[in-house]
Design a protein around this nucleic acid. Structure first.
Lengths: 243, 243
DNA sequence: GCTCGTTGACTGACCGGTCAGTCAATGAGC
DNA sequence: GCTCATTGACTGACCGGTCAGTCAACGAGC
């Protein structure tokens, strides 16, 4: 697990880097090969087709997210929820993460044309909405949340954050940082204030979003991670990617 | 204006049909040519490059949405808002419209890589959020809405609906209609109940979403249209597409 | 009202580049 | 010496874009 990463790991890393550098639409097998310092032929040795490779990559990042989320399942519901929301927000310097999310969004648009991709996307979607639903159900049981329709609330929260992020990454101008930059953060804050806060039982209080975002940046192993170590592929992949 | 559509119009129609049929990612100039029964060379005669053609198409559909929205600017704010929200919802039989929105989402993912596309997306985004903000400002002035932050509320509403639609179109399985199908509608209803309704001043009431959706289907010239006449290209294009 | 030059719309054939995928050969480890 | 990992050279398909040329419409000159 420490040194000598397996070929599969190196290739997944290569896909990750290549996606950030080139996006999905004009990602070539050669790009991936270059990023992991291997030959294109080797990629075909391990994965028959480009599709196989990309589906494997998707599986990889979704599984990673599953593990990260599972690792935090015992945190208190309110903190977990704020952290979940905070994880959609990009800090200003996380251009790599943004680039990766652009590629993931491109990948998502291929869902309708590719069943295997769609399957992974659905898995990721279930993970995200299910996580929020679990958090809410937990909180209701504990008495920190009022009794609401957890599925509906989860759907709304995830849709809102996903929509905000989509707008931010598709409209942000890489050169002159523009208004779209802080968009997700603004919407995340509004979501907390206008959707989550009314859900709190009397006496319960929301921790600040900023603190949660800061914590995520420091602690890679959070439910929906940021970049843990420089260049760690899946760090936050699955969560967003999937939807 | 009646018969003998101009070449430009026929080509735009061709792009529209081709996008629905093939999606954006594997859209070829030949596909477009086939859809409008012209030669590929003709497309290059009118538009130097494929990019030029697609940017022209984007301009075309965003402009169309601008006009449609402007045409309804004098409707009462509450009705306008419900109609705006209803226009994100796909009726079960609107597979064409869904296919088109998939292509538009693909196009949106190219924003980060193409300034001219990004420009049009930003225009569409301003249109959508600006429209909701206008509706809210109108309603506050008239006294039907409480005094809220219109920009923030508009951002939330648009993000939520957009996120819901994204999930629906990327995850829906074209063969066996699955759970993702009614997703946008569910979220739209939740948005009305949980975001819009609390905004209403005492005495004001929301018209039902279903009625608004029905009206949109019957009346193509609504702010954010459905398919007006069979095969009318831009009908609902801009609204969603953009941003 | 006929001819002829000009123009704009349009086409088919073709070119060059790109890219996924193949294959035979090489080397390393056992 | 056999297996497995890896490589570079190669191929075939596809696609954007070019180009030489056709054709119908139109207007001018007679």
């Amino acid at each position: 697990m420490s040194d000598a990463p397996s070929a599969a790991e190196e290739i997944m890393d290569g896909v990750y880097s290549a996606l950030r550098a080139h996006g999905y639409a004009d990602l070539t097998m050669q790009d991936i090969a270059d990023e992991c310092s291997k030959s294109k032929s080797l990629l075909h040795y391990h994965y028959d087709t480009k599709e196989d490779l990309l589906v494997a990559f998707l599986e990889y990042i979704v599984s990673d997210s599953e593990e990260r989320i599972a690792a935090r399942a015992d945190d208190p519901p309110v903190e977990r929820l704020v952290q979940f929301i905070g994880w959609f927000v990009f800090a200003p310097d996380e251009t790599d993460r943004e680039a990766f999310h652009i590629a993931l969004l491109e990948l998502r648009t291929q869902g309708p044309f590719n069943e295997r991709i769609r399957e992974q996307l659905a898995r990721s979607d279930r993970l995200l909405r299910g996580t929020v639903a679990d958090i809410l159900a937990d909180g209701i049981e504990t008495g920190v949340f009022r009794d609401v329709d957890v599925e509906e609330t989860a759907a709304m929260i995830v849709a809102t954050l996903d929509g905000a992020r989509t707008r931010q990454i598709t409209l942000a101008d890489s050169v002159r940082g523009d208004e779209a930059d802080g968009y997700t953060r603004t919407v995340a804050e509004a979501t907390l204030r206008r959707i989550v806060e009314p859900l709190l039982a009397d006496g319960a209080e929301l921790p600040p979003l900023d603190a949660a975002i800061e914590a995520l940046r420091r602690d890679p192993d959070s439910p929906e991670p940021d970049d843990p170590e420089p260049d760690d592929p899946e760090t936050d992949a699955a969560a967003d990617g999937s939807e």
